[in-house]
Simulated scan of single mutants.
Amino acid sequence: MASAVRTVISPGRYVQGKGAIRLLGEYLKQIGSTPLIVADDLVWGLVGHDIEASLKAADLPVNRTGFGGVPSAHEVDRVVGVIREAGADVAVAAGGGSTIDVVKAAGHLAGIRWANCPTVASTDAPCSALSVIYTETGEFEEYRFFPRNPDLVLVDSQIVANAPASMLVAGVGDALATWLEARATARSSSHTMAGGLPTLTGTALAQLSWDVLWENALPAMDAVRDHQVTPAVEKVIEANTLLSGLGFESGGLAAAHAIHNGLTAVAATHGLAHGEKVNIGSLTQLVLEGAPTSDIREFVEFTTRVGLPTTLTEVGLSADDTDALRTVADAATLEGETIHSMPFEVRSDDVVSALVSIERFATRTREEAGLPAPVRYEAH
């Protein structure tokens, strides 16, 4: 019976290391002959010279278009137009998760191949066969699923280490959710983003991502604040990008990402990184699960030390803002949301209660551990 099949999906090739950007042309040449690079002006200023040199060394033309800033349906359609006008046969994203999501969606619509060159390790978007599409104002709109994953994902570790440390912090927040959600999906025998039941492989990679981060995230953060690449940094980049990417897609999403999507429905959270909002989702999922108090306390302490938000205050909300929390909870529990992959029914009221409860608990836990008090986030 087809609905009971298990499946795992992954990018065609994953490449990571210091100086890897200089190999981009060599790997792209195996995929196509007319690449289109999609990168905003800031990213192009940082990596454009290396990409141009790499493409020229591989006898590939250098064509680039900018990126509008939000992975919206309009921006996807614009890039499709540029692809067709340029006669490109492979679209290449250079930048963060938003640029990558646009390139995957545009490459699919244009009927060409696509590759990703992430300049940050802030999300697990680079390896997946889906894009998250937002409205022009930044609210979650839809997931778009594609019949295949990127042909190439190439990560230059030094470029990631040169980026603001907050980007790697956000990636840890996104990746820590992977095991929590894959574990819940395995318990409920729900379907994954890969279109089947979770495989042992997907679930194991999700757990490996979690283990690698608990062991390496703190020393990696110290290293990237000085823009250094150490073995811990390499491990965290791989956990954030490859392990989490395969783990969420073939292991399953559950409450944490649904709550993230709910948070995007409130303007107060706009401007926060994806992984920062996901961390609130992970903490809320642990509360919904009735996880052992010691587990929740450890998660609060660890993610606070990493630099992630663990209170509503830090994402611009408050426990007594009933209307905003109801908006978040209603959006998180819409039909088709991944929160319904939890091994029990979750209603909007349950999410509101869990969100309210984390404020006092996390604040007290931080105080008892001698960690900084929460500082209110003000949307820009």
Rank of each mutant, 00 (worst) to 15 (best):
S54E: 03
S54Y: 02
L55M: 07
L55S: 05
K56S: 12
A57Q: 08
A58Q: 07
D59W: 05
L60I: 12
P61E: 10
P61G: 09
P61Q: 14
P61A: 13
V62G: 04
V62E: 03
V62P: 02
R64I: 12
R64T: 04
R64Q: 15
G66A: 08
G66F: 09
F67N: 02
F67R: 01
F67E: 03
G68N: 08
G68D: 06
G69V: 12
V70N: 07
P71I: 15
P71Y: 12
A73N: 09
A73T: 05
A73L: 13
A73H: 13
E75C: 10
V76E: 03
V76T: 10
D77Y: 11
R78E: 10
V79E: 03
V79H: 09
G81S: 14
G81W: 14
G81T: 08
V82W: 00
I83A: 09
R84S: 11
E85F: 10
A86F: 11
G87K: 13
G87D: 10
A88M: 07
A88W: 02
V90A: 08
A91P: 01
V92F: 01
A93Y: 02
A93K: 08
A94Y: 02
A94R: 07
G95S: 15
G97R: 09
S98M: 15
I100E: 00
I100H: 05
I100D: 01
D101R: 09
V102E: 04
V103E: 01
V103H: 05
K104E: 02
A105P: 02
A105K: 14
A106I: 06
A106D: 08
G107Y: 04
L109S: 15
L109F: 14
G111M: 15
R113H: 10
W114S: 09
A115T: 00
C117N: 04
C117H: 04
T119M: 03
S122P: 00
S122V: 10
T123L: 15
D124P: 00
A125D: 01
A125Q: 06
C127F: 03
C127Q: 03
C127E: 01
C127S: 10
C127G: 04
